[in-house]
Simulated assay, not measured.
Amino acid sequence: MQIGGVDTYVATPDKTKSNGHVLLFFPNAFGLHINDFLTMDAFAACGYLTLGVDYFAGDPIWKHSQSPLNDPTFDFQSWKNKHMEFTDRIAAKWVKDVEAEYG
């Protein structure tokens, strides 16, 4: 699903368990991956609508290196610089868009 033009993982609670609260999930540099999906699904199982933003726009660090800080062939600084301004802007807008949609 997209919220405000940003890919978003949505973990929806069962209607009988929904508590009416929304959790915003911000992944680390490795982006959204299976452990994050399982975590968000667990929050949803507890009644929280859980939304995970892909603010790396499909370019998480794991696509470049499994150990980015110890990989001499990976330019971590360039990857970080590429995403810093973009992710800050995306995250702030996404939060406002989530509030407008689910507020």
Rank of each mutant, 00 (worst) to 15 (best):
T8Q: 00
T8F: 01
T8K: 03
Y9V: 06
Y9M: 01
V10C: 02
V10S: 01
V10P: 04
V10N: 00
A11F: 03
A11C: 02
A11G: 06
A11H: 02
A11T: 03
A11K: 04
T12C: 00
P13T: 05
P13S: 01
D14R: 09
D14K: 10
D14Q: 07
K15G: 09
T16K: 13
K17P: 02
K17C: 00
K17Y: 01
S18M: 01
N19I: 03
G20R: 03
H21A: 13
H21E: 15
H21M: 11
V22M: 02
V22G: 04
L23Y: 04
L23H: 04
L23R: 01
L24P: 03
F25T: 04
F25N: 03
F26Y: 14
P27V: 12
N28T: 14
A29Q: 09
A29K: 05
A29W: 10
A29R: 12
A29C: 01
A29H: 03
F30M: 10
F30W: 11
F30G: 14
F30I: 10
G31M: 02
G31Q: 06
L32G: 10
L32V: 15
L32Q: 09
H33V: 08
H33K: 12
I34Y: 08
I34H: 12
I34E: 15
N35L: 14
N35Q: 15
D36R: 07
D36K: 07
F37R: 15
F37N: 06
L38M: 14
T39F: 12
M40F: 03
M40N: 05
M40K: 02
D41S: 14
D41R: 13
D41N: 15
D41I: 09
D41W: 05
A42T: 13
A42N: 12
F43H: 13
A44K: 08
A44R: 08
A44C: 10
A45K: 15
A45I: 02
C46W: 01
C46Y: 08
G47P: 09
G47M: 07
Y48N: 11
L49N: 06
L49D: 06
T50V: 08
T50F: 03
L51R: 07
L51E: 08
G52Q: 05
G52C: 06
V53N: 04
V53G: 06
D54M: 07
Y55P: 02
Y55V: 02
Y55G: 04
Y55I: 02
F56T: 06
A57C: 13
A57F: 07
G58N: 06
G58D: 05
D59L: 09
D59Q: 14
D59N: 12
D59G: 05
P60Q: 04
P60T: 05
I61V: 15
I61D: 04
I61Q: 10
W62Y: 14
W62V: 12
K63P: 07
K63R: 15
H64W: 10
S65Q: 08
S65V: 10
S65K: 07
Q66Y: 10
Q66P: 07
Q66L: 13
S67W: 08
P68E: 07
P68C: 08
P68I: 08
P68W: 07
L69K: 11
N70K: 14
D71T: 11
D71I: 11
D71Q: 11
D71W: 11
P72R: 11
P72M: 11
P72W: 09
P72V: 12
